[in-house]
Design a protein around this nucleic acid. Sequence first.
DNA 1: CGCCCTTTTGATTCCGGTCAATTCCTGTGG
DNA 2: CCACAGGAATTGACCGGAATCAAAAGGGCG
Lengths: 248, 248
Amino acid sequence: MEGKASLAQVMAAGARARGRLEPPTRDPLEASECLATTTRYRRGEEVYGPEDPAGHWYRVVSGVARKSALKADGRRQIVDFLLPGDFFGLITRHQHRFAVEAVTDGTEVARYQRGKLERLADFDPRIGRLIREAAFEAISRAQARMLILGRMSAQEKVGAFLVEMAERSRAGAAGELVLAMSRYDIADYLGLAAETVSRTLSDLRRSGAIRLEGTHRVRIVDRAALEDADGAPSAPDAIFARPIRPWR
Amino acid sequence: MEGKASLAQVMAAGARARGRLEPPTRDPLEASECLATTTRYRRGEEVYGPEDPAGHWYRVVSGVARKSALKADGRRQIVDFLLPGDFFGLITRHQHRFAVEAVTDGTEVARYQRGKLERLADFDPRIGRLIREAAFEAISRAQARMLILGRMSAQEKVGAFLVEMAERSRAGAAGELVLAMSRYDIADYLGLAAETVSRTLSDLRRSGAIRLEGTHRVRIVDRAALEDADGAPSAPDAIFARPIRPWR
DNA sequence: CGCCCTTTTGATTCCGGTCAATTCCTGTGG
DNA sequence: CCACAGGAATTGACCGGAATCAAAAGGGCG
């Protein structure tokens, strides 16, 4: 399914996410030239492959996607989960190095012609800023993830992952969280074995830090415990959350 | 030591690194407004700390720096090694989350006022592109590193690290390479213990993939072996490089 | 209802972290 | 210039946590 979204919409989304931008220096009319093609993907479907020419920039409209690399020995590393609003494919090179696939059925992705958008940015500084900030955002995300991948125990990794997803998906204050991806995806994201992810989630459940209300539904009970996981509970009142009745 | 560099120089450096940019849409005269302050740092000296306000963008002029985060438990993760030409501190937020310190004595860093540069970018699209591309570059670097951090054996990590540094520092075709940073730095960059880094380098030396010509001098003998390390030699003729006379 | 994929749980192995000791390098001061 | 001191690097021994192998249980979709 294909659709069109005006640049105005893009800008609006950007502004919403990040606060006010400067008043236009040009009439946004020219913006109508630059249209995004929105495509809908099925679960597992590929948005682009690691060998595809990199002539476009993309943005997730709805759903979830994963950006990953497949190594020769069959191992896969997921480099980023892409949620609504996230830009991806932002490179200067002529070829992608990663694949992007939809995680959920019906994931919608907006696609922009790189050249057009770039030329547009040359005239409208707001576009330039928007892209710049999207890139900065991606850097932040990537570097935050290095802290996780670098030197953490399985408990810390999974804990940090849950917190990250809760924040990025603006989960309800109650800490309810939907993990669209499989345990294998999570494992390849965190650099763990799928079995370890599963085990760790069970451990966190037993220790009362989270509640599993369905395979893909998690409720964060003791967020502090997730954050500096691996150790003792940090919040004093967290102890009372400890003796938890078994799930289901 | 402080100095001044004109924007023209910055642009020139950028163009050199990446190929031609478009002809100026405005006279570069206004560029003279935007001056970079270049500062020289001693070994271990801090360029900025994790709590500092993020009012500037930076670029390494000469030397090497490391960007790192210190965790509560004392563990450190190095998120990036910064070599000449690399931009850093590119964020929109108001506070850095990482510290940047000089690795080598006399590292020179150019500092740009973020606001000025941003306003300048609004008028001169070349500046915008330059910054955008620097950001894209950082993303690439970060995502490439995730492949390393994610799921590799110590051998693979160290091998990949050597290859990365050789490429980024344009080491002589002979594969001669200078590692400015300590084993501890390398360890914190790769998510390993310093002892493991040392051990692994020794193993690679024994297996003939590299030669150690001084604590901080490495010669890459069998690059292919480093790349898909951990396994058997890949290049057929690599076997002949195997029986290596002991170093020194 | 039944098949298949995902998830969970269990048992065993092994890589890399930790602790410890020694050697090597670098820079400093006599 | 050489001796010395202190940190950096290397090497060794041991142990623990996560990967791997294996199997059972659950859940979704035809």
